[in-house]
Design a protein around this nucleic acid. Sequence first.
DNA 1: GAATACATGTAAAATGTTACATGATTTT
DNA 2: AAAATCATGTAACATTTTACATGTATTC
Lengths: 192, 192
Amino acid sequence: MLKYALLGFLTYKNASGYDLKHFMDVSTSNFWNAKQSQIYTTLKKMEKEGLVLSHTEPQESRPNRRVYEITTAGREDLKNWTAQPMMEIGSRKEKLLLKLFFSAQLEPQKILTELRLQKNLHQAQLNKYQTTTKNVISQFAASKDLQEDARFWEATRRFGELYEEMYIRWLDETIEGICKPVDRLENSRPVD
Amino acid sequence: MLKYALLGFLTYKNASGYDLKHFMDVSTSNFWNAKQSQIYTTLKKMEKEGLVLSHTEPQESRPNRRVYEITTAGREDLKNWTAQPMMEIGSRKEKLLLKLFFSAQLEPQKILTELRLQKNLHQAQLNKYQTTTKNVISQFAASKDLQEDARFWEATRRFGELYEEMYIRWLDETIEGICKPVDRLENSRPVD
DNA sequence: GAATACATGTAAAATGTTACATGATTTT
DNA sequence: AAAATCATGTAACATTTTACATGTATTC
Protein backbone atom coordinates (compact mmCIF):
# COMPACT_ATOMS: atom_id res chain seq x y z
CA MET A 1 0.00 0.00 0.00
CA LEU A 2 2.80 2.40 0.86
CA LYS A 3 4.12 1.75 -2.61
CA TYR A 4 1.12 3.51 -4.15
CA ALA A 5 1.69 6.56 -2.02
CA LEU A 6 5.30 6.70 -3.17
CA LEU A 7 4.34 6.17 -6.81
CA GLY A 8 1.75 8.91 -6.43
CA PHE A 9 4.29 11.43 -5.21
CA LEU A 10 6.75 10.43 -7.92
CA THR A 11 4.21 11.28 -10.64
CA TYR A 12 4.70 14.91 -9.62
CA LYS A 13 8.49 14.96 -9.47
CA ASN A 14 11.56 12.81 -8.99
CA ALA A 15 12.55 12.56 -5.35
CA SER A 16 14.78 10.86 -2.80
CA GLY A 17 13.52 8.76 0.09
CA TYR A 18 14.18 11.70 2.33
CA ASP A 19 12.11 14.01 0.11
CA LEU A 20 9.27 11.51 -0.02
CA LYS A 21 9.14 11.29 3.75
CA HIS A 22 8.70 15.04 3.88
CA PHE A 23 6.04 15.11 1.18
CA MET A 24 4.14 12.56 3.21
CA ASP A 25 4.55 14.44 6.45
CA VAL A 26 2.98 17.58 5.02
CA SER A 27 0.25 15.96 2.95
CA THR A 28 -1.02 12.42 3.44
CA SER A 29 0.35 11.79 6.93
CA ASN A 30 -3.06 12.16 8.55
CA PHE A 31 -4.51 9.24 6.63
CA TRP A 32 -1.34 7.49 5.47
CA ASN A 33 1.99 7.70 7.17
CA ALA A 34 5.26 5.74 7.18
CA LYS A 35 8.62 5.77 8.90
CA GLN A 36 11.76 6.84 7.07
CA SER A 37 13.21 3.34 7.28
CA GLN A 38 10.14 1.77 5.71
CA ILE A 39 10.24 4.23 2.85
CA TYR A 40 13.85 3.36 2.07
CA THR A 41 13.28 -0.38 2.10
CA THR A 42 10.08 -0.10 0.08
CA LEU A 43 11.78 2.02 -2.60
CA LYS A 44 14.50 -0.57 -2.91
CA LYS A 45 11.92 -3.31 -3.40
CA MET A 46 10.04 -1.19 -5.93
CA GLU A 47 13.19 -0.72 -7.96
CA LYS A 48 13.68 -4.50 -8.11
CA GLU A 49 10.11 -4.78 -9.39
CA GLY A 50 10.78 -2.18 -12.08
CA LEU A 51 8.29 0.39 -10.78
CA VAL A 52 10.95 3.02 -10.21
CA LEU A 53 14.51 3.80 -11.31
CA SER A 54 17.17 5.49 -9.24
CA HIS A 55 20.39 7.33 -9.84
CA THR A 56 22.87 8.82 -7.40
CA GLU A 57 23.39 12.55 -7.27
CA PRO A 58 26.73 13.40 -5.65
CA GLN A 59 26.78 16.38 -3.33
CA GLU A 60 29.61 18.26 -1.64
CA SER A 61 29.59 18.22 2.14
CA ARG A 62 26.33 16.21 2.23
CA PRO A 63 25.71 12.52 1.69
CA ASN A 64 24.80 11.59 -1.87
CA ARG A 65 21.14 11.75 -2.83
CA ARG A 66 19.54 8.67 -4.33
CA VAL A 67 16.89 10.14 -6.58
CA TYR A 68 14.00 7.99 -7.79
CA GLU A 69 11.86 8.40 -10.87
CA ILE A 70 8.69 6.51 -11.74
CA THR A 71 8.78 4.14 -14.74
CA THR A 72 6.01 3.42 -17.23
CA ALA A 73 5.30 0.18 -15.37
CA GLY A 74 5.05 2.21 -12.19
CA ARG A 75 2.54 4.62 -13.72
CA GLU A 76 0.45 1.71 -14.91
CA ASP A 77 0.52 0.01 -11.53
CA LEU A 78 -0.65 3.21 -9.87
CA LYS A 79 -3.40 3.80 -12.41
CA ASN A 80 -4.64 0.23 -12.07
CA TRP A 81 -4.87 0.68 -8.36
CA THR A 82 -6.71 3.99 -8.42
CA ALA A 83 -9.11 2.74 -11.11
CA GLN A 84 -9.94 -0.46 -9.23
CA PRO A 85 -12.87 0.23 -6.87
CA MET A 86 -12.76 -1.18 -3.35
CA MET A 87 -15.59 -3.50 -2.44
CA GLU A 88 -15.19 -3.16 1.32
CA ILE A 89 -14.93 -0.41 3.86
CA GLY A 90 -11.47 -0.02 5.34
CA SER A 91 -11.03 -1.58 8.76
CA ARG A 92 -9.83 0.83 11.39
CA LYS A 93 -7.94 0.32 14.62
CA GLU A 94 -8.92 2.78 17.32
CA LYS A 95 -6.90 2.19 20.45
CA LEU A 96 -9.03 4.57 22.49
CA LEU A 97 -12.21 2.64 21.70
CA LEU A 98 -10.53 -0.63 22.61
CA LYS A 99 -9.45 0.80 25.96
CA LEU A 100 -12.88 2.23 26.62
CA PHE A 101 -14.57 -1.06 25.75
CA PHE A 102 -12.69 -2.75 28.60
CA SER A 103 -12.77 0.14 31.09
CA ALA A 104 -15.79 -0.80 33.18
CA GLN A 105 -13.58 -1.82 36.12
CA LEU A 106 -11.43 1.31 35.93
CA GLU A 107 -11.95 4.32 38.18
CA PRO A 108 -14.13 6.89 36.36
CA GLN A 109 -11.59 9.58 37.25
CA LYS A 110 -8.91 7.89 35.17
CA ILE A 111 -11.23 7.47 32.22
CA LEU A 112 -12.22 11.13 32.37
CA THR A 113 -8.58 12.20 32.45
CA GLU A 114 -7.93 10.18 29.35
CA LEU A 115 -10.95 11.48 27.49
CA ARG A 116 -10.23 15.11 28.35
CA LEU A 117 -6.65 14.74 27.22
CA GLN A 118 -7.87 13.26 23.96
CA LYS A 119 -10.24 16.16 23.55
CA ASN A 120 -7.36 18.61 23.73
CA LEU A 121 -5.38 16.65 21.18
CA HIS A 122 -8.28 16.42 18.77
CA GLN A 123 -9.06 20.09 19.14
CA ALA A 124 -5.46 20.88 18.23
CA GLN A 125 -5.71 18.57 15.23
CA LEU A 126 -8.96 20.19 14.09
CA ASN A 127 -7.32 23.56 14.35
CA LYS A 128 -4.42 22.39 12.23
CA TYR A 129 -6.75 21.19 9.49
CA GLN A 130 -8.57 24.52 9.52
CA THR A 131 -5.48 26.72 9.39
CA THR A 132 -2.14 25.20 8.36
CA THR A 133 -3.47 22.44 6.09
CA LYS A 134 -6.05 24.74 4.52
CA ASN A 135 -3.40 27.35 3.74
CA VAL A 136 -0.95 24.89 2.27
CA ILE A 137 -3.60 23.59 -0.12
CA SER A 138 -4.77 27.08 -1.13
CA GLN A 139 -1.23 27.97 -2.04
CA PHE A 140 -0.86 24.97 -4.32
CA ALA A 141 -4.28 25.67 -5.80
CA ALA A 142 -3.06 29.10 -6.90
CA SER A 143 -0.74 27.48 -9.43
CA LYS A 144 -2.72 26.68 -12.57
CA ASP A 145 -1.27 23.23 -13.26
CA LEU A 146 -2.12 22.06 -9.74
CA GLN A 147 -5.53 23.57 -9.16
CA GLU A 148 -7.32 20.43 -10.32
CA ASP A 149 -5.18 18.28 -8.05
CA ALA A 150 -5.78 20.67 -5.18
CA ARG A 151 -9.51 19.94 -5.30
CA PHE A 152 -8.77 16.35 -4.34
CA TRP A 153 -6.34 17.36 -1.65
CA GLU A 154 -9.01 19.67 -0.28
CA ALA A 155 -11.47 16.76 -0.17
CA THR A 156 -9.07 14.78 2.04
CA ARG A 157 -8.52 17.83 4.24
CA ARG A 158 -12.25 18.24 4.58
CA PHE A 159 -12.52 14.64 5.71
CA GLY A 160 -10.05 15.39 8.47
CA GLU A 161 -12.02 18.42 9.54
CA LEU A 162 -15.32 16.56 9.70
CA TYR A 163 -13.68 13.63 11.43
CA GLU A 164 -12.20 15.77 14.19
CA GLU A 165 -15.47 17.64 14.70
CA MET A 166 -17.24 14.32 15.02
CA TYR A 167 -14.58 12.99 17.39
CA ILE A 168 -14.82 16.01 19.67
CA ARG A 169 -18.60 15.78 19.72
CA TRP A 170 -18.40 12.12 20.66
CA LEU A 171 -15.87 12.84 23.41
CA ASP A 172 -18.16 15.52 24.86
CA GLU A 173 -21.11 13.12 24.83
CA THR A 174 -19.05 10.35 26.38
CA ILE A 175 -17.53 12.54 29.09
CA GLU A 176 -21.00 13.72 30.04
CA GLY A 177 -22.29 10.17 30.13
CA ILE A 178 -19.57 9.16 32.57
CA CYS A 179 -19.98 12.21 34.82
CA LYS A 180 -23.68 11.56 35.19
CA PRO A 181 -23.83 8.00 36.59
CA VAL A 182 -26.67 5.68 35.70
CA ASP A 183 -29.74 5.89 37.93
CA ARG A 184 -29.64 2.56 39.69
CA LEU A 185 -32.31 3.15 42.33
CA GLU A 186 -35.24 2.06 40.22
CA ASN A 187 -33.66 -1.25 39.38
CA SER A 188 -31.85 -2.11 42.58
CA ARG A 189 -34.81 -1.55 44.94
CA PRO A 190 -37.84 -3.20 43.48
CA VAL A 191 -41.14 -1.77 44.67
CA ASP A 192 -43.27 -4.27 46.54
CA MET B 1 -2.16 -4.45 21.23
CA LEU B 2 -4.21 -7.48 20.31
CA LYS B 3 -3.06 -9.00 23.56
CA TYR B 4 -5.05 -6.41 25.53
CA ALA B 5 -8.18 -7.21 23.59
CA LEU B 6 -7.72 -10.90 24.40
CA LEU B 7 -7.00 -10.19 28.06
CA GLY B 8 -10.08 -8.00 28.14
CA PHE B 9 -12.35 -10.75 26.90
CA LEU B 10 -10.78 -13.27 29.26
CA THR B 11 -11.70 -11.12 32.28
CA TYR B 12 -15.30 -12.04 31.50
CA LYS B 13 -14.86 -15.76 31.00
CA ASN B 14 -12.38 -18.44 30.03
CA ALA B 15 -12.32 -19.07 26.30
CA SER B 16 -10.58 -20.82 23.43
CA GLY B 17 -8.93 -19.03 20.51
CA TYR B 18 -11.96 -19.90 18.47
CA ASP B 19 -14.31 -18.40 21.05
CA LEU B 20 -12.22 -15.24 21.27
CA LYS B 21 -12.36 -14.75 17.52
CA HIS B 22 -16.13 -14.84 17.73
CA PHE B 23 -16.32 -12.48 20.67
CA MET B 24 -14.26 -10.05 18.64
CA ASP B 25 -16.35 -10.42 15.54
CA VAL B 26 -19.52 -9.47 17.35
CA SER B 27 -18.11 -6.72 19.56
CA THR B 28 -14.82 -4.91 18.91
CA SER B 29 -14.34 -5.86 15.28
CA ASN B 30 -15.33 -2.43 14.02
CA PHE B 31 -12.45 -0.75 15.84
CA TRP B 32 -10.19 -3.72 16.54
CA ASN B 33 -10.12 -6.90 14.54
CA ALA B 34 -7.74 -9.84 14.08
CA LYS B 35 -7.46 -12.99 12.04
CA GLN B 36 -7.91 -16.40 13.61
CA SER B 37 -4.28 -17.30 13.01
CA GLN B 38 -3.03 -14.18 14.75
CA ILE B 39 -5.18 -14.91 17.76
CA TYR B 40 -3.74 -18.41 18.10
CA THR B 41 -0.12 -17.27 17.84
CA THR B 42 -0.68 -14.35 20.19
CA LEU B 43 -2.28 -16.56 22.83
CA LYS B 44 0.69 -18.88 22.66
CA LYS B 45 3.07 -15.99 23.19
CA MET B 46 0.97 -14.68 26.05
CA GLU B 47 1.11 -18.02 27.79
CA LYS B 48 4.91 -17.96 27.60
CA GLU B 49 4.83 -14.52 29.19
CA GLY B 50 2.60 -15.78 31.99
CA LEU B 51 -0.39 -13.59 31.17
CA VAL B 52 -2.67 -16.54 30.54
CA LEU B 53 -2.85 -20.25 31.35
CA SER B 54 -4.35 -22.95 29.18
CA HIS B 55 -5.68 -26.45 29.58
CA THR B 56 -7.02 -28.89 27.04
CA GLU B 57 -10.63 -29.95 27.13
CA PRO B 58 -11.13 -33.23 25.26
CA GLN B 59 -14.27 -33.58 23.17
CA GLU B 60 -15.83 -36.46 21.34
CA SER B 61 -16.09 -36.11 17.59
CA ARG B 62 -14.65 -32.58 17.67
CA PRO B 63 -11.04 -31.43 17.99
CA ASN B 64 -9.98 -30.70 21.54
CA ARG B 65 -10.58 -27.23 22.88
CA ARG B 66 -7.62 -25.32 24.31
CA VAL B 67 -9.23 -23.11 26.91
CA TYR B 68 -7.39 -20.08 28.25
CA GLU B 69 -7.81 -18.27 31.52
CA ILE B 70 -6.28 -14.96 32.56
CA THR B 71 -3.66 -14.95 35.33
CA THR B 72 -3.10 -12.34 38.03
CA ALA B 73 -0.18 -11.03 35.99
CA GLY B 74 -2.50 -10.76 33.01
CA ARG B 75 -5.07 -8.78 34.97
CA GLU B 76 -2.37 -6.41 36.12
CA ASP B 77 -1.00 -5.94 32.63
CA LEU B 78 -4.46 -5.10 31.35
CA LYS B 79 -5.18 -2.69 34.18
CA ASN B 80 -1.84 -0.93 33.67
CA TRP B 81 -2.65 -0.46 30.05
CA THR B 82 -6.16 0.90 30.55
CA ALA B 83 -4.99 3.20 33.34
CA GLN B 84 -2.10 4.63 31.30
CA PRO B 85 -3.39 7.63 29.29
CA MET B 86 -2.30 8.00 25.68
CA MET B 87 -0.48 11.18 24.84
CA GLU B 88 -1.13 11.07 21.10
CA ILE B 89 -4.04 10.64 18.78
CA GLY B 90 -4.11 7.30 17.01
CA SER B 91 -2.83 7.38 13.45
CA ARG B 92 -5.30 6.09 10.91
CA LYS B 93 -4.85 4.55 7.50
CA GLU B 94 -7.66 5.39 5.12
CA LYS B 95 -7.12 3.73 1.77
CA LEU B 96 -9.94 5.66 0.15
CA LEU B 97 -8.38 9.00 1.06
CA LEU B 98 -5.02 7.89 -0.28
CA LYS B 99 -6.62 6.90 -3.57
CA LEU B 100 -8.54 10.13 -3.79
CA PHE B 101 -5.45 12.17 -3.05
CA PHE B 102 -3.80 10.79 -6.18
CA SER B 103 -6.89 10.67 -8.40
CA ALA B 104 -6.56 13.97 -10.28
CA GLN B 105 -5.54 12.16 -13.48
CA LEU B 106 -8.32 9.58 -13.23
CA GLU B 107 -11.59 9.86 -15.18
CA PRO B 108 -14.23 11.52 -12.95
CA GLN B 109 -16.64 8.72 -13.84
CA LYS B 110 -14.43 6.14 -12.17
CA ILE B 111 -14.02 8.25 -9.07
CA LEU B 112 -17.77 8.73 -8.81
CA THR B 113 -18.39 5.00 -9.16
CA GLU B 114 -15.99 4.36 -6.31
CA LEU B 115 -17.49 7.03 -4.07
CA ARG B 116 -21.07 5.89 -4.69
CA LEU B 117 -20.12 2.31 -3.94
CA GLN B 118 -18.50 3.44 -0.71
CA LYS B 119 -21.65 5.36 0.17
CA ASN B 120 -23.70 2.18 -0.09
CA LEU B 121 -21.27 0.29 2.07
CA HIS B 122 -21.20 2.99 4.74
CA GLN B 123 -24.96 3.28 4.75
CA ALA B 124 -25.19 -0.46 5.37
CA GLN B 125 -22.65 -0.14 8.18
CA LEU B 126 -24.57 2.74 9.76
CA ASN B 127 -27.71 0.68 9.62
CA LYS B 128 -25.95 -2.20 11.35
CA TYR B 129 -24.82 0.05 14.20
CA GLN B 130 -28.35 1.39 14.62
CA THR B 131 -30.09 -1.98 14.62
CA THR B 132 -28.05 -5.15 15.20
CA THR B 133 -25.29 -3.65 17.35
CA LYS B 134 -27.75 -1.56 19.35
CA ASN B 135 -29.92 -4.60 20.07
CA VAL B 136 -27.02 -6.80 21.09
CA ILE B 137 -25.85 -4.22 23.62
CA SER B 138 -29.35 -3.63 25.03
CA GLN B 139 -29.70 -7.33 25.66
CA PHE B 140 -26.50 -7.47 27.66
CA ALA B 141 -27.47 -4.30 29.50
CA ALA B 142 -30.59 -6.07 30.76
CA SER B 143 -28.45 -8.35 32.92
CA LYS B 144 -27.63 -6.53 36.15
CA ASP B 145 -23.98 -7.56 36.42
CA LEU B 146 -23.25 -6.26 32.92
CA GLN B 147 -25.24 -3.06 32.78
CA GLU B 148 -22.27 -0.96 33.84
CA ASP B 149 -20.08 -2.59 31.19
CA ALA B 150 -22.79 -2.08 28.60
CA ARG B 151 -22.54 1.69 29.02
CA PHE B 152 -18.99 1.54 27.70
CA TRP B 153 -19.94 -0.76 24.88
CA GLU B 154 -22.68 1.66 23.98
CA ALA B 155 -20.15 4.49 23.85
CA THR B 156 -18.07 2.60 21.27
CA ARG B 157 -21.22 1.82 19.29
CA ARG B 158 -22.17 5.47 19.34
CA PHE B 159 -18.75 6.34 17.94
CA GLY B 160 -19.41 4.04 15.03
CA GLU B 161 -22.78 5.62 14.42
CA LEU B 162 -21.39 9.16 14.42
CA TYR B 163 -18.45 8.08 12.29
CA GLU B 164 -20.63 6.56 9.60
CA GLU B 165 -22.95 9.57 9.56
CA MET B 166 -19.93 11.80 9.12
CA TYR B 167 -18.48 9.57 6.42
CA ILE B 168 -21.72 9.58 4.42
CA ARG B 169 -22.00 13.33 4.73
CA TRP B 170 -18.45 13.72 3.47
CA LEU B 171 -19.09 11.35 0.56
CA ASP B 172 -22.16 13.38 -0.43
CA GLU B 173 -20.18 16.60 -0.32
CA THR B 174 -17.32 15.09 -2.29
CA ILE B 175 -19.55 13.51 -4.93
CA GLU B 176 -21.26 16.85 -5.43
CA GLY B 177 -17.93 18.62 -5.71
CA ILE B 178 -16.81 16.27 -8.46
CA CYS B 179 -20.09 16.47 -10.42
CA LYS B 180 -19.98 20.24 -10.45
CA PRO B 181 -16.60 21.00 -12.10
CA VAL B 182 -14.57 24.03 -11.12
CA ASP B 183 -15.37 27.28 -12.93
CA ARG B 184 -12.20 27.84 -14.87
CA LEU B 185 -13.30 30.75 -17.09
CA GLU B 186 -12.46 33.50 -14.64
CA ASN B 187 -8.93 32.32 -14.15
CA SER B 188 -8.05 31.08 -17.62
CA ARG B 189 -9.06 34.26 -19.44
CA PRO B 190 -7.55 37.18 -17.58
CA VAL B 191 -9.29 40.49 -18.14
CA ASP B 192 -7.02 43.09 -19.67
C1' DG C 1 -24.69 -32.34 -2.58
C1' DA C 2 -22.80 -28.01 -0.91
C1' DA C 3 -22.05 -24.88 2.51
C1' DT C 4 -21.39 -23.59 7.08
C1' DA C 5 -20.00 -24.40 11.84
C1' DC C 6 -16.83 -26.51 14.80
C1' DA C 7 -11.81 -26.48 16.17
C1' DT C 8 -7.04 -26.50 15.76
C1' DG C 9 -2.86 -24.97 14.10
C1' DT C 10 1.81 -24.00 10.92
C1' DA C 11 4.50 -21.42 7.43
C1' DA C 12 5.57 -17.78 4.68
C1' DA C 13 5.18 -13.27 3.28
C1' DA C 14 4.16 -8.59 3.87
C1' DT C 15 4.13 -4.61 6.61
C1' DG C 16 5.50 -1.67 10.14
C1' DT C 17 8.27 -0.02 14.27
C1' DT C 18 12.38 0.80 17.00
C1' DA C 19 17.01 1.12 17.52
C1' DC C 20 21.54 1.73 15.80
C1' DA C 21 25.20 3.99 12.92
C1' DT C 22 27.50 8.04 10.62
C1' DG C 23 28.82 12.82 10.08
C1' DA C 24 28.89 17.72 8.25
C1' DT C 25 26.15 22.16 8.30
C1' DT C 26 23.11 25.38 9.86
C1' DT C 27 20.25 27.52 13.15
C1' DT C 28 19.00 28.81 17.96
C1' DA D 1 27.09 24.74 23.17
C1' DA D 2 23.07 22.30 21.82
C1' DA D 3 19.68 21.16 18.63
C1' DA D 4 17.89 20.66 14.18
C1' DT D 5 18.46 19.72 9.21
C1' DC D 6 20.39 17.16 5.60
C1' DA D 7 20.90 12.29 3.93
C1' DT D 8 21.65 7.62 3.89
C1' DG D 9 20.92 3.10 5.37
C1' DT D 10 20.94 -1.78 8.26
C1' DA D 11 19.22 -5.00 11.76
C1' DA D 12 16.13 -6.72 14.81
C1' DC D 13 11.80 -7.11 16.20
C1' DA D 14 6.74 -6.96 16.26
C1' DT D 15 2.51 -7.24 13.93
C1' DT D 16 -0.59 -8.63 10.50
C1' DT D 17 -2.18 -11.12 6.42
C1' DT D 18 -2.56 -15.00 3.38
C1' DA D 19 -2.26 -19.55 2.37
C1' DC D 20 -2.04 -24.24 3.60
C1' DA D 21 -3.59 -28.46 6.17
C1' DT D 22 -7.14 -31.54 8.49
C1' DG D 23 -11.54 -33.61 9.47
C1' DT D 24 -16.47 -34.24 11.53
C1' DA D 25 -21.27 -32.76 12.07
C1' DT D 26 -24.97 -30.24 11.01
C1' DT D 27 -27.88 -27.39 8.21
C1' DC D 28 -29.77 -25.79 3.67
